[in-house]
Amino acid sequence: MKQWRRLSRPARWLAVGGGLALVALACALIVQTASSSAPESQRLETIGSGDIEKVVLATGTLKPAVQVNVGAQVNGQLRRLYVRQGDRVKKGQLLAEIDPTLQESELNNARAQLASARAQKRSAEATLWRYRRELERQKAMMRDGAGVRSDYEQAQADYDAQVQQIAVNDAQIVQAEMTVKTAVANLGYTRILAPIDGEVLGIVTREGQTIVSSQMAPTILVLADLDTMQVQTRISEADVQKIRPGQPLWFYAIANPEKRYTSQMGFVQPAPQEMLEEQNMGGRSGGQQPTAVYYNGTFAVANDQRELKTAMTAQVFIRIAEAKGVLRVPVAALGQALDAERYYVTLFDQGRTETRIVRVGINDRRYAEVLEGLQEGDRVVLPQETTQE
């Protein structure tokens, strides 16, 4: 203090002025440091244009568009297989042959019964001719007054009965002919022919095995047309009203996520598969209500390269809306929602932040379409990423 009093008045003012200048310089440095470090301490993204595609995700299972379990309609031993697994076959091609001994015997027996029925009819026709002659003779005698009434009535009855016998013989012949046709068909069933063009997916019955088809047709092999695959998707109840036939989609198989396939939605089942199965069981669901409801949606995709295999799992993306070349904002930048379309967004401009209300359209969970409130080149603040130590 004594030293301060020893200073002259001009020296005092010079010292005070220097101190104030130092304080002002320090404040300026603090403000400049704060304003220049603000962009570095926050995550920013510049608003620009691009495409937005809104999709519904679903999981699907691949299977051939056409698949047939080729079975046997007759009993017998599988004598020979003419194809192997993986072979391509044409419709009508011989696939397998069942020992025809039983069916040949049935056919011979049916033909013998038919011959017997026809012989019986010929015999009945000969008897009918004799009864007709006798009836005509009795009628002539009755006209001449030389006949006996009882003999005439007997002749008439014999003739009428024989006419009915001919009708019985005709019915027996028809029945025997049908038996022959059935036996011929059963003999033909011993030769298993391909019902479609396709590939042999698997052999179920081997050569030498005995086939019994009394209750259901046993499967010998499985054929499928692998040129076209069908994808059956499970669509959530929350999304099913957004899906309709004809919508474009793309998917990848879990086995190869890098390969993308495109198609369009085909048929959307109007009832859950679980409910249909419950109806098939007579409504016996055990009183349990399913926790989630899914609807089946199916579509087809070409499989010329045979890359898609049966029972593969597919991740399906169904496009329900799109916007091309539109202004878009990161979904992460959207703050508090005012309604379904309007949100608060924080902007950074010239070292300052401001809050603005924007109106958005569709979004793809990463970007949202900007309808109002932002311009290209605006910088929006994104929330800070949190790291777990």
Rank of each mutant, 00 (worst) to 15 (best):
D144Q: 11
A171G: 10
A171W: 02
V174I: 12
N169D: 03
A167E: 14
A155D: 06
G147D: 00
A167F: 10
A146S: 11
V174T: 13
G145S: 14
Q154F: 08
D151K: 13
V168N: 09
E177K: 12
K139Y: 06
D170H: 04
A155W: 03
A171R: 12
S150F: 03
D170W: 08
V174M: 06
Q162K: 07
V148R: 13
K181Q: 01
Q162W: 00
V148W: 04
Y152K: 03
Y159F: 15
V168Q: 05
A155I: 13
D158Q: 11
N169P: 01
Q156M: 08
R143K: 13
A161F: 07
A157I: 13
V174R: 08
T179E: 10
A140M: 09
A167N: 02
R149G: 06
A167Y: 12
D170I: 14
A171I: 11
A161I: 10
Q154T: 14
Y152F: 06
D160Y: 10
T179A: 12
M141G: 02
A140Y: 06
S150V: 07
I173P: 00
D151F: 05
Q154C: 03
D160I: 05
I173M: 02
Y152V: 05
V168S: 11
V174D: 12
E153D: 15
E177A: 08
A155M: 01
Y159A: 13
